[in-house]
Write a protein that binds this DNA or RNA. Structure first.
Length: 563
RNA sequence: GGCGGCGUAGCUCAGAUGGUUAGAGCAUACGGUUCAUACCCGUAGAGUCACUGGUUCGAAUCCAGUCGCCGCUACCA
């Protein structure tokens, strides 16, 4: 039987991630993983923090911490917020782990053995006061073309000219401001993407089922022609390069980051070696279907560089079967911005509302085929209409009516009839639509199908009007309400990939056993599963509504500073 | 500068290989209901598919140009 391996792009260690990061990789991967588990599939969902590189070193420096400690803190902070969002990683690792170091060096050795590594000398700016090499963007100075005095060494943000750091007038270190810089030449290793190009292209072209975005990004790179790519850096924080003369260098983060997908799986495996086998997922694993999730900026690395790394080893490592790329979630038409504090970050979001509000909303507006835009008005309208109005209200009106007329036990009496047949048929259609959408990685469509499923309950209860039936035919009213309570169970099961916390709350309300909670999508369609006489509880309001005043306050609070 | 993407109802977005009256949700209007979180259900109106020209029997869908928005530019990740 097929086993499903799922990874979402590794969030960089540096700082809290925002809703755009979440919806572009981890959240849809989680929904997909939860959905497959609901279908009874064997799933391994792996993610990790991407910890190496200059930004981490500099952030640590700014906080007066050594980089290891800085990463320890940030990793815990990120992991914590992901757990609170209900991201159901089977393991959330760290690219700085010994497992990743070992694997990264292995990949390098194989590439080197197969002659896909080339050594070249390159020139870089060295800051004597900082005692480090500076990446181009960490050198700032006056632009030779427009005179802007804070141009970066890779590009002037004012006139958009592409620059070399050596072209800057009065260059200085972005780290310390020191002008004590010099150009030094050092040797570096390059991955021969050029010689692997035709193999990569053949692989890309064999994946015809990829989304348009993924495929076109890959082909764009291939058509432009691949160049050898530098995979080492003059840093100390990273994976050491096992080669003479490279004692003071490490691998470039982009080389070791994808390898951490494997590394994190080994971290997971090493915690319980007798029951977990990382290699069965990653090496010679014919029965594994591997799906990757990421935002579009990551696509070149996952369609070109990482596959090239694998192909170059000449070993049978698992390559992606499906690469789901997302566009951007914008914030009022612009970018979420950490530096300007613009947009909603994950910790802020949870401070305002529980995770399911965000999870449902984000999936329903996932930027799948185009960028999509976050506004508080849109958020409030989705929450109020779908979660509070359609789902929450159905649960509330049903359980309250039963409790007040029959007490808090599922009522007995009445005969299943044509109305119920019709309801069941509608639910079946919607669940099929939902299942198909998720199997095809169509998240917006899945959210819409789920919402449609929720609507059937309100249509049914309105058509049957049990509040009227109660006056004439108490048994018939009991049937209708018993069916509605079963529908709550249906919703709890089917909705769990998107709103897992709400599903659990509903299971609690219905007093379901651990065994009963394991029901899958097909079991969810049994509208007589909960028999008469079972007790239930009337829960507090499931989802609260957001009013204009509150929405207004959030818009102001998260607008950020203007330029 | 180069490259790429986008511009479809008031809003957010769908619309392979071009083919009947261009779709969904929200919002709006009207009607129904009163068990429920002033909620729910139904019906309706609403678009010269950015603009111009071209290819074609036929284009939102292909081509060229114009305008507008956005992103990337491989040593930030």
């Amino acid at each position: 039987m097929t086993r499903y391996l799922i990874t979402s792009a590794l969030p960089y260690i540096n700082g809290m991630k925002h809703l755009g990061n979440l919806v572009g990789s981890m959240l849809p991967a989680d929904v997909y993983a939860r959905f497959l588990r609901l279908e009874g599939e064997e799933v391994l969902y792996i993610c990790a923090t991407d910890e190496h590189g200059t930004p981490a070193e500099i952030a640590a420096l700014e906080e007066g911490l050594d980089v290891k400690t800085y990463c320890d803190i940030q990793h815990q902070r990120q992991k914590d917020v992901y757990m609170r969002f209900g991201l159901s990683f089977d393991y959330f690792g760290r690219s700085s782990s010994p497992q990743n170091h070992e694997l990264t060096q292995h990949f390098y050795r194989m590439l080197n053995k197969n002659s896909f590594i080339e050594e070249r000398g390159i020139q870089q700016i060295y800051s004597l006061d900082d005692e480090r090499f500076l990446p181009d963007r960490y050198v700032i100075g006056t632009c030779p073309k427009c005179g802007y005095d804070r141009a970066r060494g890779d590009q002037c943000e004012s006139c958009a000219s592409l620059l070399n750091p050596s072209e800057l007038v009065e260059p200085r270190s972005a780290v310390s401001g020191s002008r004590n810089l010099e150009l030094r030449t050092s040797k570096h290793l390059f991955l021969r993407l050029d010689t692997l190009s035709s193999e990569i292209e053949a692989w890309v072209k064999s994946n015809t089922q990829w989304p348009k975005l993924t495929y076109s990004v890959a082909m764009k790179w291939l058509n432009e022609g691949l160049q050898p790519r530098c995979i080492t850096r003059d840093l100390s924080w990273g994976v050491p390069v096992p080669r003479e003369g490279y004692e003071n260098k490490v691998f470039y983060v982009w080389f070791d980051a994808p390898i951490e997908y494997v590394g994190a799986t080994k971290e997971w495996s090493d915690q319980d070696p007798s029951n977990r086998d990382w290699k069965s997922w990653w090496y010679d694993a014919d029965d594994v279907y591997y799906a990757q999730f990421m935002a579009k900026d990551n696509l070149p690395f996952h369609t070109i560089v990482w596959p090239a790394t694998i192909l170059g080893t000449r070993e049978p490592w698992t390559m992606a079967d499906y690469i789901k790329g997302f566009n951007w979630l914008t914030y009022y038409g612009g970018k979420f911005s950490t530096s300007q504090g613009r947009g909603v970050f994950m910790d802020d979001a949870l401070e305002i509302l529980p995770p399911d509000y965000w999870r449902y909303f984000l999936i329903s507006v996932a930027p799948e085929s185009d960028d999509s835009d976050f506004t508080w008005d849109l958020f409030a309208s989705v929450v109020n209409k779908d979660l509070a109005g359609t789902l929450g209200n159905f649960v509330n009106r049903t359980l309250k009516l039963v409790a007040s007329r029959f007490g808090t036990g599922i009522p007995d009496g009445g005969q299943w009839g044509e109305h119920e047949d019709k309801l069941l048929a509608q639910c079946k259609d919607s669940i099929e639509e939902y299942r198909t959408a998720l199997r095809n990685f169509e998240f917006r469509k899945a959210a819409l199908a789920l919402k449609k499923l929720w609507t059937h309950g309100n249509v049914y209860i309105d058509a049957r009007a049990p509040w009227n039936l109660l006056k004439e035919d108490r048994d018939e009213a009991a049937l209708v309400l018993r069916t509605c309570i079963n529908l709550v169970r249906t919703y709890a099961i089917a909705s769990s990939p998107l709103i897992p916390f709400t599903s659990e709350a509903l299971f609690d309300v219905l007093g379901m056993t651990e065994e009963e909670r394991k029901a899958g999508l097909d079991d969810a369609l049994d509208l007589t599963a909960l028999k008469a006489g079972r007790p239930f509880e009337v829960p507090p309001i499931l989802f609260r509504r957001l009013d204009l005043e509150e929405v207004d306050a959030y818009r102001k609070r998260f607008a950020g500073t203007q330029d």
